[in-house]
């Protein structure tokens, strides 16, 4: 039977992004300084990739608890998310599959992070 991970959504406000920066000690101005980020190809401040990764890991853990305590996570940061947008993390496992397809989406539905989680202990 297919399994769907219950999604979680966060509003990535500038305040929340600043708190995340403090949490991971990543003060890259690409995420925190609109004036700096406006001069980059992104055109404005973007959410840390690590913030989306955190939300995804938390979403998996809240959905499956210790089932997600061991395994391999492989992620690609596919599209930027502007500060102020929402991020929604989720995933699913097809019937008979081993791996979960996992993702983080922007408010407009664009996939910002894509990847897989393969549950299992150290090999």
């Amino acid at each position: 039977m297919a399994i769907h991970i219950t999604p979680q959504t966060l509003l990535a406000t500038a305040d929340r992004v600043a708190l995340h920066a403090q949490l991971v000690q990543d003060f890259n101005p690409l995420h925190l300084d609109e004036a700096f980020a406006a001069q980059t190809p992104f055109g404005g401040a973007i959410v840390h990739g690590s913030m989306m990764m955190n939300l995804l890991v938390d979403t998996l853990e809240r959905a499956g608890g210790r089932d997600f305590a061991a395994g391999d996570l492989n992620l690609r940061f596919a599209a930027p998310v502007r500060v102020g947008d929402t991020i929604t993390a989720g995933g699913e496992k097809a019937d008979g599959a081993t791996d979960y397809t996992v993702w983080v989406k922007r408010g407009d539905g664009t996939v910002a992070v894509s990847g897989i989680f393969r549950p299992g202990g150290d090999s």
Binding site: Q25, L73, L75
Partner: peptide, 23 residues
């Protein structure tokens, strides 16, 4: 990871990530 190599230039981009959790 951030602290392991400082200072670093402004504007680096995180492109992909692998993580293995051992349990």
């Amino acid at each position: 990871f951030i602290a392991s190599g400082q200072p670093r230039p402004k504007g680096n981009i995180h492109a992909s990530q692998s993580l293995r959790f051992t349990g």
